[in-house]
């Protein structure tokens, strides 16, 4: 097999298409990059945590179709359930910053300085990161469970 020479093989896979597998290897990093781009620009322009999370989940589902569920779990490293929990904790943490500074709960707190790539950083952005993690976690939990049957 030509695929095996390039490390493109899948032993226990149901069906394996070398075209799809090769395309996935290039598309997966691009899609993940796109999702992060959407997340970062979300505060000022169309985008945000939800859309970014959906794009990231679609990237992983493409990997799941090209290879199999077991490989996708290994690629993801974390349990989808853990991602959901982490996202909720991050969102809660972003809400808890303002009471420490003596402002009402969930008030947006922004850094004075702007970071080079991200722009202004504040608790709304942190909240968006939480949404991103929750969306990725929930979508992948559903997809992986359905695919495992």
């Amino acid at each position: 097999m030509i695929g095996r020479a390039f490390g493109l093989s899948c032993e226990g896979c149901h069906m394996f298409s070398i075209v799809l597998a090769t395309a996935t290897r290039f598309l997966l990093p691009l899609l993940l990059l796109l999702s992060v781009y959407l997340l970062v620009r979300g505060h000022n322009e169309p985008g945000g945590g939800f859309v970014g999370g959906l794009v990231a989940a679609s990237a992983f589902s493409l990997y799941m179709i090209a290879f199999d569920v077991e490989k996708t779990r290994r690629l993801l490293r974390a349990e989808p359930r853990a991602l959901v929990g982490a996202g909720l904790l991050v969102a809660l943490g972003s809400a808890g910053v303002s009471p420490v500074l003596g402002k009402p709960f969930m008030t947006g707190v922004w850094l004075e300085r702007t970071l080079p790539v991200v722009g202004k950083v504040g608790t709304p952005f942190l909240f968006d990161v939480g949404v991103y993690l929750v969306v990725v976690g929930v979508c992948l939990m559903i997809l992986l469970t359905v695919a495992e049957e």
Binding site: P46, V55, S58, I65
Partner: peptide
């Protein structure tokens, strides 16, 4: 900004078609 929408639609529809193809092939198997 609408061109971005077209880009995402392209990605998602590609994924949908691939998923359908996967389903057809599995049903045939």
């Amino acid at each position: 900004i609408f061109l971005d929408v077209a880009l995402f639609l392209a990605l998602v529809s590609f994924l949908g078609t691939v998923a359908f193809a996967y389903y057809v092939e599995r049903r045939q198997l």
